[in-house]
Amino acid sequence: MKKIVQGTAFVFGNNIDTDQIYPGKFVELTEIADIKKHAMSGSEIPDLVDKFKPGDIIVGGKNFGCGSSREHAAITLKGIGTSAILAESFARIFFRNAINLGLPAITCKGIHALINSGDQISINFTSGEIKNLNTGKIAYAEPMNDYIMNILQSGGIKAMILKMQKEKKTLQTK
């Protein structure tokens, strides 16, 4: 996991549900190469995949990722190379899925008002500083606990488990 990422922001509203992120009609796909073609195709930016470059950043309002547990929603955003998702709050299953995949889902109160689509954003995962390079405005992410940071730094929970199996550790949180 990189310490600092920088990319262009794509801003969405409140309650962006999993059917907007990844419409149900595509859930029969199982390969990342296929799944990533439909990212946000049910949303207000249906052609996101044509505009999005690896390293770019998704910004949401409240309750980002509400709805289904289908991991396709997190897989598709990871697939297009999202470096981080910033939101006022996340729906919990989406949050889990993103973290488990090693995709940083960062909660930051007030972030939605600070960023417009097209702004250049930098995120420092160590200090939690989020900077809008177009306006110079700064916000700070809610700190993440060590367990979640460990998953992200391992590149996802699967990689973390494989590493623990090698070291013969069990899945302990404390």
């Binding site: 547990s69 289908r70 991991e71 997190a74 897989i75 299953i93 889990r96 899925n97 488990n100 995949l101 996802g156 929970i157 699967k158 488990i161 899945l171």
Partner: peptide, 10 residues
């Protein structure tokens, strides 16, 4: 509670 695919695999 509901979880995703990766949690399920683990």
């Amino acid at each position: 509670t509901g979880v995703g695919t990766t949690d399920l695999a683990v």
